[in-house]
Design a protein around this nucleic acid. Structure first.
Lengths: 230, 230
DNA sequence: CGAACTGTTGAGAGGCTTCAAGCCTAGTGG
DNA sequence: CCACTAGGCTTGAAGCCTCTCAACAGTTCG
């Protein structure tokens, strides 16, 4: 990804869609582009952040350090998503960590510019509020799922989530390569338990999976298991 | 509660602290006060809301309709809290329901005024953003707790939550009367399991409980069990 | 190419839920 | 105001679901 296309990419972010000439110039001057390899940590729980990140490419996992050495994953962020804005808004230290799970290109927008846009650009601030609200809603939904559904139901649901968020390639394979441990951490279980459910799904002809590659064969079957919408 | 004190009560809400003369008058004209008895439903999941509610008195539970006929409780709201604002901000239908569990006095602020304040009063909009962010953070924290902790740990934690939010009376009793079913629904378990943990706590001298009245005897003991902060 | 991590399956243990049954509390209607 | 009834409280027993531990095959990446 070359720099000239980055300006174009940034324009695709809804939050930046209402910027005037002055703001655009300032964004281009103040921003920093980072290239991160898989496995690199972008920020850590407890640290004080000095700006937000727009994801231009790759996949980032947002997680917490939980009890018993686990690392529950809050969500996955991909191209088009923004991360690290919540702690800025409430002026707290980060309550999550972020790690790259698929080589990523990030655009750092400094706190000062963020504040300026929040105060002076209603499209920006309105869009940020919408993002937070959406996250709050999905966080609530997620909670219900994880607490009141069995591992089998959650295993089906996470496949649907990955499908919706990352899509399929031409051969019906999920367009994301992610470890079973990470998936298990997304639905609050251990890799072994997740494994067993996937094995079941395989026997039932719902999916095919070889290592990290997952093929979705029967969407409606998975939906039935996941019991979406109550 | 008489009407003259209501204006005073509303001023106590941080979101209204920065209003000018005009906005104050409009709030007083446009608002509606509702008196709700225990058990009454304020709004239902899926309905379109026409304003937010400020809780002037009483306790309201925010819950969802989950699988298997359960009603997982997202949070409890008391005097000083505002509810139903999220769906307004993202212009969606309500994703939760709200029911009174302790006789309540609510102040309804219509959507139009809400929008006006969001656009014209930076103290108001800033405070709303902070409220959403705080909720998002606690929602994330809550999720981790509920997923990766045992029922015993969660049972201890919910007591600490109730203690912090509602406090104790002179005799060390929690200042909230809530059913075991509701508490169980807050920590993602069934009343019977919660019961057993409370019985244990009783044997260990951590609490005393008779029916809906819960007395906290050993705070640090509960904290140790809850394993707060990882 | 080798070490470290991940994937996969099995066996066993234990925590939690479900079902059941009786007591008690609280809210309703006469 | 009191009796009644529905629902909440409480405990026990049984069984299932999920986690833990273990072992080995496969994969990834330096």
């Amino acid at each position: 990804m070359v720099l000239s296309t980055i300006e174009y990419e940034l324009k695709q972010f809804k939050i930046f869609s209402g910027m005037n000439e002055f703001e655009s110039v300032r964004l281009n001057n103040d921003k920093t582009i980072f290239y991160h390899k898989k496995g690199e940590v972008i920020y850590r729980e407890g640290s004080r952040l000095d700006g937000l990140y727009c994801i231009l490419d790759g996949i980032v996992k947002i997680y917490k350090n939980g009890p018993n050495g686990r690392q529950p994953i809050i969500c996955l962020a991909k191209k088009g998503d923004i991360i690290a804005y919540r702690s800025l808004l409430s002026n707290e230290t980060a309550c999550t960590s972020a790690k790259v799970i698929s080589d990523a290109v990030l655009c750092h927008v400094p706190y000062s510019l963020f504040l300026y846009l929040m105060d002076n650009n209603p499209i920006f601030s309105g869009e940020i509020v919408r993002v937070v609200c959406r996250e709050l809603r999905s966080s609530n939904d997620y909670m219900i799922n994880i607490v009141h559904k069995s591992v089998r139901e959650r295993a089906a649901e996470i496949l649907l989530y990955l499908l919706e968020k990352f899509g399929l390639d031409g051969n019906k394979f999920l367009q994301i390569r992610i470890t079973k441990t990470d998936i298990a951490n997304m639905i609050g279980t251990v890799p072994e338990s997740l494994m067993r459910e996937f094995s079941e799904f395989r026997k039932e002809g719902l999916i095919e999976s070889v290592g990290r590659n997952i093929k979705i064969l029967n969407l409606s079957g998975l939906e039935k298991i996941a019991k979406l919408n109550i």
